[in-house]
Write a protein that binds this DNA or RNA. Structure first.
Lengths: 179, 179
DNA sequence: GAACGTTTGATGACACGTCAATAATTCCAT
DNA sequence: ATGGAATTATTGACGTGTCATCAAACGTTC
């Protein structure tokens, strides 16, 4: 005996799906048009731009982004071919590898960020008032919490605690917003 | 001069992104595991199950789902190879074609729906109280409205007005929820 | 120090989605 | 009726993402 969705629940689910479809595709389309980057590209570049030496271990990056190692590896390969990032060996652990932001990649993310933020504002943030922003945050964080501690936005590894790069979004400092 | 996101806005955007990532991947994973269907598969089957003769014109379906014609054509081809749907000619317009639900497809969607609804409840709907459901709906519909009338969930074509299949979600009738 | 299981990444096969180009039919204006 | 534009659908090339599998290096245990 299935517990079907009520009309209100159905409506919420449909609105959610449609919103995500529209927002994501609009933001992605504009990012591609303005900067020649895909959303995944942007997220990788942004994560690297937040890192100390503009480099991260593949696994660390994959965990942080909630990507499969395989996905990241594939994507890094493709980005490498466009000179946005490079791989570098890790001297302490020969299995491991770094992904490093190239100058090209750094310029690309710096150039892309303002238009991207504009785009996010246009299609989501600026459409909502203060209460709605708060509601969205609270709903989002509630859902995220349900998936457990592994899924926090900032699963900062033990040995990484104390770094403060993340706070730097709205200031004009070196890390570029992963917005 | 870029209008960067404030801390609150940044937090909302990050929570939104992460929520979408987690919910979508969990629901998709469970659907694939339980029913051997992808989300796109489910959406196509569900849309067809809502149609009068379990069939729809390709273009009509593409518009309704907000998919590109190309995407739908590709996907239908793949689904056809798995015997979930078939193509049929349209006698009135020789350019046109129907996609038709096969018996296999019909059985597949009927079997998949309960688990899928369970999954949507587990990872989103049941996590939220009544107010939050209402807030999510209102936020979603506000955003959808921003994208214009073309993007309504139910861009019912003129000649289709009056059909009532959509109302039938929570009842146990023939159309299967597109949830 | 050899054997075992674990961690870290890479890879191939395949599903998915977009874009641009194509073909066939229909519609419409003359 | 005919020629040009619009509609409908398909296709190929390519970028993207997943899953299963593999290989190499590490670390621990005996």
């Amino acid at each position: 005996m299935t517990n079907w969705l009520s009309d209100d629940e159905q409506r919420a689910w449909r609105a959610y799906r449609r919103m995500v479809l529209l927002v994501d595709s609009a933001v992605a389309r504009e990012l591609a048009h303005d900067a020649g980057l895909s959303m995944p590209d942007y997220l990788v570049l942004s994560a690297l731009s937040e890192a100390a030496d503009h480099r991260r271990r593949l696994t660390e990056l994959a965990v942080r982004m909630q990507w499969s190692p395989s996905r990241l590896s594939h994507h890094v390969t493709r980005m490498e071919q466009r000179s946005l990032v490079t791989r570098a060996e890790c001297s302490e652990d020969l299995r491991a590898a770094y992904v490093v932001l190239t100058d090209t990649g750094w310029e690309a993310i710096k150039a892309a960020a303002p238009d991207h933020v504009r785009s996010v504002r246009d299609h989501l943030i600026d459409l909502l008032d203060e209460d709605e922003i708060a509601a969205l945050t609270s709903i989002g964080e509630k859902v995220i919490a349900h998936f457990g501690a592994d899924c926090l936005d900032r699963p900062v590894p033990r040995d990484d605690v104390g770094r403060a790069d993340y706070a730097a979004q709205s200031a004009n400092r070196s890390p570029v917003s992963s917005s």
